[in-house]
Design a protein around this nucleic acid. Structure first.
Lengths: 252, 252
DNA sequence: ACCTGAACACCGTTCAAGT
DNA sequence: ACCTGAACACCGTTCAAGT
């Protein structure tokens, strides 16, 4: 990877903390000389990130993709950080929120939410990385948190436990989807299938003295298709969480 | 932040997949001209990452810290990615593994493990970012996974459910600790306290139409000290997970 | 109002050379 | 065996200028 990059402006907590935060300067509906546009820039950013990953994304590549000089983008966006924060909120907007709310059983709502979020993470493997970097308080991200809270409140848990239970579910789904996305990314970068990659890792671990303990698990995973096992584990873990929330609720 | 950096070598899955992976070239115990050394380089890397964060870490800064030319480091380490992977495995080594194994009740072992791992993440907020980037199959990381598996096997769950249950616990702790570490980092970068930062975020969210739903939660969190609430939520979520695992086990 | 060009201060890394 | 120096191909971004 290799992160470190020169940073001229001091670190701010989030774009969304700025007073008129919805674009670098102004928004115009009229056709501009180069046809540039805040939203067009953000959508192109998302597409480039999806296609080539975070490592290969640069302001200069984005400009080239838009058929424009690097500095043109800076008229619409203050800096790269802000642009990435916009792109991140954009993918939060892809998560459907109504479906979960319309379902009768709160447990089905949790399952629905979990699988939507998981799908978003695997579709945009760069997204969790940015979520770890920024504050996540864009309009779509806030709408998502709000909807998640609403679902968890239907569990019947006492109010003071809602955030804790939500954290358990959310962090699990987030972490799981992140790891899955990383395998997908790695596969694309190296040109190998996920299962081949896993077998290669397994081979490296096998040479270690501590291997004996992990042997059965690794052996199971090098046999079948990884995708099925991942679905199985995801489903089971989610049921653990739901059952745990019910158990804690009934204890009180 | 700003990730993208030029990358000359093609992406490999992990340093640990190389045949003689434990140093760039050779290890020598005798005193070298500049006193450089594989382990010294890794430890200095960890220290710099702790002190200044991932964004400000560069091979050139590392070399300067070591009192040496940038290219000297490359005699011991193939590239920046490999070095960061070494640094990451180094902090995995800080997690005590015996304590959890010696405890009688498997639930106490899980609690012990969870709090150790959480502490490691908050002490090295850059670490989770690297875990998302690399394969995590260094010797210390593998020892950690092995120990975690051993603990979960004591729960009495059927073998095929161990990995799923472990994922639930691990991903929760990982995600939670990552977020906590991020607040700590942000506080250091902006010079504000965590609670001040949270209040600033809350103010930004308050102006949105969707705010009404989140109001009570945010209000609760802007009052008291955030650290206490975070401990409370962490503990509750962990109990949810343990209770859920027990419930799923007893269902079978 | 919108976009360009040149320049600055950084990167990681190669390659040939020194001791 | 270990380390240096110069150079290359990239970055994000400022600043002054064009239309």
């Amino acid at each position: 990877m290799a992160p470190a990059a020169p940073r001229a402006s001091k670190p701010t907590a989030s774009v969304w903390l700025n007073s008129g935060a919805q674009g670098g300067r102004r928004r115009r509906s009229a056709q501009q000389p180069a046809g540039l546009d805040h939203r067009k820039i953000v959508l192109t950013t998302v597409r480039l990130l999806d296609e080539h990953g975070l490592q290969d994304f640069s302001m200069r590549r984005l400009a080239a993709e838009l058929g424009v000089t690097p500095m043109s983008v800076y008229w619409y966006v203050d800096n790269k950080d802000d642009l990435l924060e916009y792109a991140l909120d954009e993918v939060f907007g892809e998560i459907p929120l109504q479906v979960a709310e319309e379902v009768d059983d709160w447990r089905d709502a949790v399952r629905e939410f979990a699988s939507s979020y998981r799908r978003t993470l695997t579709t945009h493997p760069w997204a969790p990385r940015l979520m770890g970097e920024y504050a996540n308080i864009g309009p779509n991200a806030v709408a998502f948190s709000t909807a998640a809270h609403k679902v968890m409140r239907r569990s019947g848990l006492a109010p003071e436990w809602i955030t804790g239970a939500l954290a358990a579910v959310y962090q699990f789904v987030h972490g799981y989807g992140t790891v899955e996305g990383r395998w997908i990314e790695l596969g694309r970068a190296t040109g190998a299938t996920e299962d081949d990659l896993f077998r290669e890792m397994a081979r490296a671990v096998r040479d270690r003295p501590e291997f004996s303990e992990l042997a059965p698990i690794i052996d199971e995973r090098t046999k079948g298709p990884g995708a099925r096992l991942r679905d199985r584990d995801f489903a089971f873990a989610l049921e653990c969480l739901i059952a745990g929330i019910e158990a804690m609720r009934d204890r009180a």
